[in-house]
Design a protein around this nucleic acid. Structure first.
Lengths: 119, 119
DNA sequence: ATCGTATATCGCCGATTAACGATGAAAGGT
DNA sequence: ACCTTTCATCGTTAATCGGCGATATACGAT
């Protein structure tokens, strides 16, 4: 496997995990569903999505492991809830990355213009 | 396979593809690298990342297909460049999703308080 | 024409993912 | 005590991913 990626495995790691959690349509739907309703038990999501219960459970697990969803094991039905802070933090990170790219491009443009004027 | 997900294959599709492109550490690094330098040929990325050239080429392809990177086939070396607009748009979409969740949670809280006061 | 360089693509592999059904465990209701 | 509901986990299968080396392809230089 990734013999070359074992280095520096950390800074992006959480980021990458978050994006990975968002990289499946079912999980996006689950997130939206969770945000819109109070009854956040697994069964409800299952009914809404028409996927097998075990499959939904897996997707929920991925979301939980990525930190985007919190689970509170209740009486007989666990309750799932979007971790809005984590989601916001991921969103923030993407904003930052985007801004970095935008700024870099801007600087590049300015530098090119400066060079042109020096000629 | 996803017998159940063939429905409604579109609205999230681009989103999901974007997040998927961001869900690998090598691709995040590539994005950052592309944004920071002018010389955006494949070889340069290869040297920077210490992955095989074919592997980097694959990752670039994923980024291009997701629309986050634009490729301009030049003389003998293609030039890769971050599509800042697409990245910004993805970032925007995540912001929106986040806001949706935050708002829903806020509403939920308010509603619960209202119910409590009615008692 | 041939060589060198830069990419892209192919074929292969091992690992991972995503789906399912079946089974097990915990909690409630009767 | 027993049945039902709800969820998690296991095992299986098929598909996809991520890596590599090897092989095109395209072009400039000699």
């Amino acid at each position: 496997m990734a013999r070359a990626l074992s280095d520096e495995c950390c800074p992006h790691q959480k980021l990458v995990q978050g994006f990975n959690a968002l990289s499946h349509p079912a999980r996006i739907k689950i997130l939206k569903h969770l945000s819109g309703f109070d009854a956040c038990c697994c069964k409800e999501v299952v009914q809404h999505l028409d996927l097998a219960q075990s499959t939904v459970s897996q997707h929920l697990k991925v979301l939980v492991e990525a930190g985007l969803v919190q689970v509170r094991p209740e009486r007989q039905s666990s309750r799932y809830e979007v971790d809005t802070e984590a989601l916001a933090s991921l969103s923030e990170a993407l904003s930052l990355l985007t801004q970095t790219c935008v700024d870099a491009k801007e600087n590049k443009k300015l530098r090119l213009e400066a060079e042109a004027n020096e000629q």
